[in-house]
Computed example of a mutant assay.
Amino acid sequence: MKKFWQLWLSAILATFLLAACGTDDAKKDNTPVNGSSQTEDQASEEVAEFPLTLTDAVGNDITLEQAPETIVSMIPSNTEILFALGLNDEIVGVNDWDNYPEEALEKEKIGGMEFNVEKIVSMTPDVVFAHESMLGTGEEGLQQLRDAGINVFVVKNAADFEQTYETIKTIGQATGKTEEAATIIEDMKAKVEEVLAKTAKVENEKRVFIETSDVPEIYAPGKNTFMQQILDMIGAENVVTEEDWVMISPEEIVKQNPDVIIVMYSYVPDIVESVKKRDGFSDITAVKEERVVQVDENLTSRTGPRLALGLEEIAKAIYPEAFGE
């Protein structure tokens, strides 16, 4: 189980790389880096009228004659967006890892990182929503789906909140759910504003370490990652100063002495207590002050409708006093 979880995590982490600049001012103006293409932005802002042609993340034009009646989703973030848009009846297949909402558990599974092309073809979906993070391992399978005459829309890697909003807009347009998409985005933005208003009052900035896997290979987000953007937004300091995702030793974590340790995975039982018992960790401020906190990795890693709740969960873990906790 651990092996498969880590393989999937490595794919998910690929969706969290930000552009090399622009995150420093995220907290000031709540305007994350927006690297989405002009074509995708323009398309997502138009009212959905069919037939409709959209350009996906790899530059392919996808023409939909009408709002799709049968949909396959190939990654959890897409699935959460589709369900939030009210497309339960239209969704006929989902990824093996899809676990939210509960209705997703009842859908036919099409595989994980290695998906079942024949099964998807047999479902005769009007559209398959793939994802840019899949291209390294799944491009051959996606081309087989295209060759079978199936519309494959590759959704762009959302590298920040703004691109997540654009993704929701685009999927909403592709499915004829533009109004529902707009409502989801408005609700997300309201939650983000609420969280930032509370954390803006914090006076003492906390130094934070976030880990996404356990020993012996502890991985953590550094600069130019989605998690870095979140920390910037709520006024917290990342103790990891290297670029992107890095493997870090327990000794270095002790040396950095974070005020808060956030555990962003759940495949290890009683992981919070396990972290506290690592050699030398009893001297870390976060351990001394009982500030080792486990968060829901689905909320904090899936770039979909619940991402604003993930921001709130991270903020509460670091600054509980700002939320009256």
Score class of each variant (00 low, 15 high):
residue 201 K to M: 14
residue 249 S to A: 10
residue 227 M to W: 13
residue 216 P to E: 09
residue 248 I to Q: 02
residue 239 V to E: 05
residue 211 E to H: 04
residue 246 V to S: 05
residue 245 W to V: 09
residue 198 K to L: 15
residue 152 V to A: 14
residue 227 M to K: 10
residue 197 A to F: 08
residue 211 E to R: 02
residue 217 E to Y: 09
residue 222 G to P: 03
residue 208 V to L: 06
residue 210 I to C: 00
residue 239 V to W: 06
residue 165 Y to F: 13
residue 185 I to Q: 06
residue 218 I to M: 10
residue 185 I to N: 06
residue 249 S to T: 15
residue 123 M to A: 13
residue 178 T to H: 00
residue 187 D to G: 03
residue 192 V to S: 14
residue 161 F to Y: 12
residue 130 A to I: 04
residue 216 P to S: 08
residue 132 E to F: 12
residue 231 L to D: 00
residue 144 Q to P: 00
residue 207 R to Y: 08
residue 209 F to V: 02
residue 235 G to Y: 06
residue 172 G to L: 01
residue 123 M to R: 07
residue 174 A to Y: 12
residue 186 E to A: 14
residue 138 G to S: 14
residue 254 V to A: 02
residue 197 A to S: 15
residue 227 M to T: 07
residue 148 A to P: 05
residue 131 H to S: 04
residue 213 S to F: 10
residue 173 Q to V: 14
residue 229 Q to K: 12
residue 228 Q to D: 11
residue 156 K to H: 15
residue 215 V to F: 05
residue 159 A to P: 02
residue 166 E to V: 06
residue 222 G to E: 03
residue 251 E to D: 08
residue 222 G to M: 11
residue 221 P to A: 11
residue 136 G to V: 02
residue 172 G to S: 08
residue 130 A to V: 10
residue 165 Y to G: 00
residue 218 I to W: 00
residue 208 V to I: 12
residue 171 I to F: 09
residue 237 E to H: 13
residue 207 R to N: 15
residue 192 V to Y: 07
residue 185 I to R: 05
residue 129 F to L: 08
residue 176 G to N: 08
residue 239 V to G: 00
residue 214 D to G: 02
residue 158 A to T: 09
residue 221 P to D: 09
residue 152 V to F: 15
residue 129 F to Q: 00
residue 241 T to A: 10
residue 216 P to Y: 00
residue 173 Q to Y: 00
residue 181 A to Q: 05
residue 127 V to M: 11
residue 243 E to R: 03
residue 147 D to K: 15
residue 203 E to I: 06
residue 124 T to M: 13
residue 238 N to F: 04
residue 144 Q to K: 15
residue 216 P to W: 04
residue 207 R to Q: 15
residue 139 E to V: 04
residue 213 S to V: 09
residue 128 V to M: 12
residue 235 G to E: 10
residue 235 G to K: 05
residue 135 L to K: 09
residue 141 G to I: 08
residue 126 D to F: 13
residue 170 T to N: 13
residue 123 M to T: 02
residue 218 I to R: 03
residue 152 V to G: 03
residue 191 K to I: 01
residue 184 I to H: 09
residue 214 D to F: 01
residue 185 I to G: 00
residue 230 I to Y: 12
residue 146 R to T: 14
residue 148 A to V: 09
residue 135 L to M: 14
residue 203 E to T: 15
residue 206 K to C: 11
